[in-house]
């Protein structure tokens, strides 16, 4: 066990933590904006999966990861559009809609993959390159952990203050937060509730899409069915554990990512424990975190989360 604690390994684990946190941060921030607007989008997992597939397919078709990234964002936006159309316009039960989106993504991504890609021999795409930041990358410890990552990772971490600024320091952000607490205020001011919900949910979908892109073209050359493996669901837990705040979300995402990085390292060293214990660990931790969260402090959960707004209601 001693070799677990050498400096190189610690740095490697922390660098892996930052990398693994990337899609979780994107997806959780996307869901944060969505939930702040009062819409509970349980389709994060499906949105991410569809975006991961679109990123792979777009990148494969054009040979450019940039095109893949664009395709992933578009897929995220389209899934989010479906969600908000059902939730805000048709006012369908949001829980069921979100689940339907997950099932749709699981079925569609697998079907499209089998039809268009399984015929060729092991289709592969380019993977986004590492982008060490000059000078910063040379700082001892911090450099290899933080500044020898990929472009999307930097973007994810930059999105944390950006989303905070958007939600708490801009007029649009304020309006979105009001939607989640008391949409009638927006309505009585003669402003469109629905329009703002579309904006928030689609913006959130694009962020989730970026998270999906990182899972395929940001990390590996191939697509495999169900490649997101529950990351979207973890993002929902991270939003709760982070108490609906960007900083809390960053912290919660890093905790999950650290656990994951740690289990990869321990598995690599070869500890005599069934590997399934490590694989199940993040999901067990998710339940534990939610229980702990329920006991401490005031919840910032938007009061109108998941409840459709009907004009003229009391």
């Amino acid at each position: 066990m001693n070799e677990l604690f050498t400096e190189t390994i610690l740095i490697a684990v922390l660098a892996a933590t930052v990398r693994i946190a990337t899609p979780l941060i994107f997806a959780a921030l996307g869901e944060l904006i969505t939930e702040r607007a009062g819409i509970l989008n349980l389709g994060v997992e499906g949105t991410m999966l569809m975006a991961a597939f679109a990123g792979f397919a777009g990148s494969f078709a054009t040979g450019s990861t940039w095109a893949g990234l664009l395709a992933a964002m578009l897929a995220g936006a389209m899934m989010a559009f479906l969600m908000v159309f059902m939730a805000a316009t048709l006012k369908v039960e949001q829980v069921v809609t979100g689940l339907a989106l997950n099932l749709l993504a699981a079925g569609m991504s697998l079907y499209l993959f089998k039809v268009y890609f399984e015929t060729q021999s092991m289709p592969m795409t380019e993977v986004m390159p590492f982008m060490p930041i000059p000078y910063l990358a040379d700082i001892p410890w911090l450099g290899p952990i933080m500044f020898q990552q990929k472009g999307l990772t930097y973007l994810a971490f930059l999105m944390v203050p950006a989303v905070w600024f958007f939600l708490y320091r801009t007029k649009w952000g304020l309006e979105i937060r009001v939607l989640g607490e008391n949409p009638k205020v927006i309505d009585t001011k003669g402003m469109s509730v629905t329009l703002r919900q579309y904006g928030a949910v689609i913006m959130g979908g694009v962020l989730v899409g970026l998270g999906g892109a990182f899972v395929t073209i940001g990390s590996v050359v191939r697509f495999v069915p169900d490649i997101t493996a529950g990351r979207g669901w973890l993002a929902l837990v991270i939003v709760i554990a982070g108490n609906w705040r960007p900083s809390g979300i960053l912290l919660a995402a890093l905790v999950f990512a650290f656990l994951d990085a740690l289990q990869l390292q321990i598995q690599g060293v070869g500890v005599d424990l069934p590997y399934q214990i490590f694989l199940a660990l993040p999901y067990v931790m998710a339940v534990v975190l939610m229980v702990l969260k329920s006991r401490g402090g005031r919840s910032e959960q938007p009061g109108r989360l998941g409840i459709p707004y009907f004009r003229g209601e009391r």
Partner: peptide
């Protein structure tokens, strides 16, 4: 030769259409 997973996708599509029509 069409993958049987088509039916999984279709089941989800039925659900989405149903939710829409049920409105």
């Amino acid at each position: 030769g069409v993958p049987s997973t088509l039916t999984d996708a279709i089941q989800a599509i039925i659900l989405l259409f149903f939710l829409t029509a049920a409105v």
